[in-house]
C-alpha cells in the first residue's frame, strides 16, 4: 500500500504547516507516540531561533524517529541506519553556511551509530542532535536497545533485559558535547526552549527527548497508554538544571531527572579549521 496517499479531506490547516510537507501526511507514527510532539517542538524552536530555513538541513537515520526528515519542509535527508551523523558531518563541513540538525532515535544514534555519535561530540562538530529515546526499536516491532532499562521486557528480552543501558546525557557530556539537555514529551515548552538554545549553540549540542512507545515498550512493560505515560512523566520527572549527568541514569520505574545539564564554551572543529587555514595561508609558499 502506498504510504503517501493523501487523505481526501483535510479539515484544518496544521498549525505547523509552514514547515511540514503536508502532502506526506498523515504520518506513520502510532497514537500516543511522542515523536510527533518532539517534531512539533523542534519546528517551534526553529521558528523561534530565527535561523533562515533555506540554510537549515535535517538528517535522519532509520527507525520511527528517522522518518521525521521526511515530513519537514527543509532540505532533508533520510540516510542509512546509524549513519545520519557522519553524513551530516560531510554536509556541514562542505557548506559552512548550513545549520545541520540530526533527528533520530536511540537505537539509530546510540547502538549502530554510537561510534559516530561519540566522535562527532569529541570533534565538537557544529550540529544539533535530537535523540528521541523510547527505550526500544519501534519500527521493527519493539526489540531491546542500547537504552532499554535493565530487566525491562521487549520482544527480544522477553524475560527481562540483562544489559545496562546507556545514560545518554552522560555519554554525550563525556564525549565532549557543549550543550546537553533532557526532557520528556510532557515538557513541551521547556523542550522547545531547550531546542532553540541548542540550535543557536555553536558546537555539538545534544537534546534527549524521553518519549512513550505505547504500542511496544510501554505495553510490554505494562506502563500504560499514551496518557498514562504523560501522567507517569509528571509524577516521576524532576527538573534539576546543572545536574551531574553521571547520576542521570533511568530505571524502569524510577525517577527521571530532566533539565539542562551542560552548557559550556569550547572551540569547535571549524574554529580549529579556521586557525589552521590562517596558519597555511601565512606560510611562505
Amino acid at each position: 500500500m502506498s504510504q503517501v496517499e493523501k487523505p481526501t479531506v483535510i479539515p484544518l490547516k496544521h498549525p505547523r504547516e509552514s514547515l511540514l510537507r503536508e502532502e506526506r501526511l498523515p504520518h506513520i507514527w502510532c497514537s500516543g507516540c511522542g515523536i510527533g510532539t518532539a517534531l512539533n517542538c523542534f519546528i517551534g524552536a526553529l521558528e523561534k531561533s530565527g535561523l533562515p530555513w533555506d540554510k537549515v538541513a535535517i538528517v535522519s537515520g532509520i527507525g520511527c524517529a528517522g522518518r521525521a526528515a521526511g515530513y519537514i519542509k527543509l532540505d532533508s535527508f533520510h540516510t542509512t541506519h546509524g549513519r545520519a551523523i557522519p553524513f551530516a558531518t560531510g554536509l556541514r563541513l562542505a557548506n559552512p553556511e548550513l545549520k545541520v540538525v540530526i533527528f533520530s532515535g536511540d537505537g539509530d544514534l546510540i547502538a549502530i551509530g554510537g561510534n559516530h555519535f561519540i566522535h562527532a561530540a569529541r570533534r565538537n562538530i557544529d550540529m544539533t542532535v535530537i535523540c528521541v529515546n523510547n527505550f526500544n526499536y519501534g519500527m521493527t516491532g519493539g526489540q531491546v536497545g542500547p537504552t532499554t532499562p535493565a530487566m525491562a521486557k521487549t520482544t527480544t528480552s522477553p524475560y527481562g533485559n540483562s544489559e545496562h543501558p546507556f545514560n545518554l546525557p552522560y555519554l554525550a557530556a563525556a564525549s565532549g558535547a557543549v550543550y546537553v539537555a533532557r526532557w520528556t514529551t510532557l515538557h513541551v515548552r521547556r523542550l522547545e526552549r531547550s531546542l532553540t538554545e541548542a540550535l543557536l549553540k555553536e558546537g555539538f549540542s545534544f537534546v534527549e527527548v524521553i518519549s512513550p512507545c505505547p504500542t511496544y515498550f510501554d505495553r510490554m512493560n505494562r506502563l500504560g497508554e499514551g496518557l498514562d505515560m504523560m501522567k507517569s512523566y509528571q509524577e516521576s520527572s524532576e527538573i534539576v538544571h546543572g545536574f551531574d549527568p553521571r547520576k542521570a541514569d533511568i530505571d524502569l520505574r524510577g525517577k527521571i531527572i530532566v533539565g539542562k545539564f551542560i552548557d559550556i564554551e569550547k572551540p569547535t572543529y571549524l574554529d580549529f579549521q579556521k586557525e589552521i587555514q590562517a596558519r597555511v595561508e601565512g606560510e611562505p609558499s
Binding site: V59, A88, T89, L91, L93, A94, N115, H116, H119
Partner: peptide
Amino acid sequence: PQLGGVYIQMEDEIASMNAILGASWGGL
C-alpha cells in the same frame, strides 16, 4: 587546506563513505 578544501579523518570507513555523500550534497 592550501586549496580551501576540507580534509577530515573519520572514525572508520563507514563514516568516511557517509561524509563524502553528505559533502557532495553540500556542493563539493
